[in-house]
Simulated assay, not measured.
Amino acid sequence: MRIVFLNSLEKKDGGATAGDAQVWIGEEDGVWRMGWNESTGEEESETIWYEGGSWSEMLHIYRHRLVIKLGEGYRPVIEGIWDEREEFHGRGMAAQRLICYSELHENETLYNELCGWRRKKASAERKAPYLIASNRLLRLISVFRPHTVDELLQLPGVGENKAAEYGTELLALTAAQAGERPGEFPLDWVERDIDDDTFRSWMYRQKEAKFRMEMEKFSLRRQALEAMAQGGNLEGICERTGLERRDAVELLEQFEKDGYTTEALVQLELQDMPAEEKSSIWQAFEELGDAFLKPVLQRAYDQETIETANLDRLYERIRLLRLSYRRHKDQAQKAG
């Protein structure tokens, strides 16, 4: 096997080296392999992270797995995995340090009280709770416990409107809790209180969730494309990916935007659809455009059908036929 990438990492504990590791990528006969070799004391282990033919899939797994290790405290001996200056000393890092501190020094009692207040407020105003305040904002308020509107405004996520609308109630909750605050406002002391390595590990853990979602999304797309290439139908994609039919159709729409063709699957799904029904929908697209589905539904079907038929099924047919319509329109524009 030919090694095409290798980087060494080490983990410190109180200044002493607590572990050494290497992350590597190799290739042999068109097959990529990627792994992690770790040495802790006298114990050595090797874990294969990936083995297959997709460079793109391997890179997604590489970023996800590596950021987990960085979150555990491993640091590259040779820099270059990410641009450290951009990641940890760029714009917005002051706010990130406040969030980091609030998650490392939780005040669960006040946080739970704030969550209860948000729940009641959301119910009374018929809003989603996150529109009142995010979990992170409530965590910040619970830890730093602002006493004035000016202090409340210094927390990331609080603007003039939110302070005016909810500030009085929030400050009443923070003032009611006894005991000293961890520090006074302004909160510039937080940057001095959190050492760089602790902050980096926390930031890497945030990235882990992001990269995991990207990896799962990539894997889902690959499974759907493989099902299409094998001549599968919409139900086959759903079984393979775990998606609902509506989400699977949305994925097909994204494939078309990305340059893939879904025509074979569309024809398979609509093979039993009456030609008159197809024609009515096609004509509605030509007259009304293809941006909105409801006007097309109302033009193509009579009111009795709309009231008695499965609406999800009707909309699914319209969305599938819209894929063909848009492809036909694009081809006509290019030819003209």
Rank of each mutant, 00 (worst) to 15 (best):
residue 122 A to K: 05
residue 122 A to M: 06
residue 122 A to Y: 09
residue 124 A to P: 00
residue 125 E to A: 14
residue 125 E to R: 14
residue 128 A to M: 10
residue 128 A to W: 07
residue 129 P to K: 10
residue 129 P to Q: 13
residue 129 P to N: 10
residue 130 Y to Q: 10
residue 131 L to D: 04
residue 131 L to P: 01
residue 131 L to C: 11
residue 132 I to K: 07
residue 133 A to W: 06
residue 135 N to T: 07
residue 136 R to P: 04
residue 137 L to C: 03
residue 137 L to A: 01
residue 137 L to G: 05
residue 138 L to T: 00
residue 138 L to H: 03
residue 140 L to D: 05
residue 140 L to G: 01
residue 140 L to K: 03
residue 141 I to C: 03
residue 141 I to E: 07
residue 142 S to N: 02
residue 142 S to Q: 00
residue 142 S to A: 15
residue 143 V to A: 02
residue 143 V to W: 08
residue 143 V to P: 11
residue 145 R to Y: 00
residue 147 H to W: 09
residue 148 T to W: 03
residue 149 V to D: 14
residue 149 V to S: 13
residue 149 V to N: 12
residue 151 E to D: 12
residue 153 L to T: 07
residue 153 L to V: 01
residue 155 L to R: 07
residue 156 P to G: 09
residue 156 P to Y: 08
residue 158 V to D: 01
residue 158 V to M: 05
residue 158 V to Q: 09
residue 158 V to R: 00
residue 158 V to I: 15
residue 159 G to Q: 08
residue 159 G to H: 02
residue 161 N to F: 13
residue 161 N to Q: 15
residue 162 K to C: 02
residue 162 K to H: 04
residue 163 A to Q: 06
residue 164 A to M: 08
residue 164 A to Q: 12
residue 164 A to R: 14
residue 166 Y to E: 07
residue 166 Y to L: 02
residue 167 G to D: 01
residue 167 G to Y: 02
residue 168 T to N: 14
residue 169 E to A: 15
residue 170 L to R: 01
residue 170 L to F: 05
residue 170 L to M: 02
residue 170 L to N: 02
residue 171 L to P: 08
residue 171 L to W: 11
residue 171 L to F: 06
residue 172 A to H: 10
residue 172 A to P: 09
residue 173 L to K: 15
residue 173 L to E: 08
residue 174 T to K: 05
residue 175 A to E: 15
residue 175 A to S: 14
residue 176 A to R: 15
residue 176 A to F: 04
residue 177 Q to L: 15
residue 177 Q to G: 07
residue 178 A to I: 03
residue 178 A to F: 11
residue 179 G to C: 02
residue 181 R to P: 06
residue 182 P to F: 04
residue 182 P to K: 01
residue 183 G to S: 01
residue 183 G to I: 06
residue 184 E to H: 12
residue 184 E to N: 12
residue 184 E to G: 13
residue 186 P to S: 11
residue 186 P to G: 11
residue 186 P to I: 02
residue 187 L to F: 09
residue 188 D to I: 07
residue 189 W to M: 00
residue 190 V to P: 12
residue 191 E to S: 15
residue 191 E to P: 07
